[in-house]
Amino acid sequence: MRKQTLSLAAVATGAALALSACGGVSTTTGGDDGGAYPSGSVEMYVGADPGGSSDLISRQIAGGLSDELGETFSVLNRSGSNGALAAAEVQQAEPDGSIISIQNASLFAITPLAVAEDEVTSIDDFDVVGGVSRDDYVLVTNSENPWTSIDDLKGAGKKLTYGTTGVGTGAQLACALTYESGDIDSEAVPFDGGAPALTALLGNQVDTACLQTGEAIENIENGKLTALSVYAPERIDFLPDVPTATEQGLDVEVYQYRFMTTPKGTPQDVKDTIWEGMQATFETEDYQAFNEQNSLTPLEVPGDEVVEMLESDRERYASLVEEYGIDLGDAS
């Protein structure tokens, strides 16, 4: 399936090039003036490397939009700085809908707590079209360990290590909040993404780890890992037996979600067209199976709701981080 999306993207880029074969220096072209949106191919920047969940989601939506709206939506990877580089591309683009991006909440709600002020990306620089899906974090431990709940960790009687998927990520925040608010002696061990953190956990090199559900679920189901907690507002469909942190008496709610953005000042009809195309995509069986397969919970809400969520999450995280004196990175 991955191969298909790749070749689809290749075809899309090719078509874009064919279209752009005239007029000035160009790489790929956006829509030209006049006519209904989209009048040309659309570039979707993604702030992550190929293969991760951000990339897969972007490609899935891009495929759906291409089908629904009749023009090619091609995905360009511009990874780095938790998506800030891709965000900058969109921020600087013409507000005509020819360059859009599905972005991560963590860039706006969590990264500001971990980086210097001038590196902060603000949601005010974008128009938010609408939400896509939510990706939940889960606290896991190797099943050789005797622990089955957060309370067990409190009684572990030693300094616990927790693997995270990197600095300034939701996984780190979730774990840090758990240990700090639960008053458990701990040390964070950052890894470069989910896969190495998972490997270390499987080898019992670290005691616990916070991972995205999609990364951990296979090993939870086959019994190699024990899930101790999820950080969603309520139990999630993919792990119905795992209690939330709130149920276990800790006020920790952290999740990643993704939403469609356009440059600030994009005309309303363009945004409406994109949103309609996305909603049609959400309806397809293919897309729903994709969500299922990657343990993604739909979050198909309008843009203003997403902005509200981002604002409240950012404030909530900031106050929690301050309350428990958590060090997410250099600037906090």
Binding site: A10, V11, G14, L17, A21, V25, T28
Partner: peptide, 12 residues
């Protein structure tokens, strides 16, 4: 531009 479909800045 055609074989690999890689975007390069091009004049023509």
């Amino acid at each position: 531009l055609y074989g690999l479909r890689i975007p390069l800045p091009h004049l023509f």
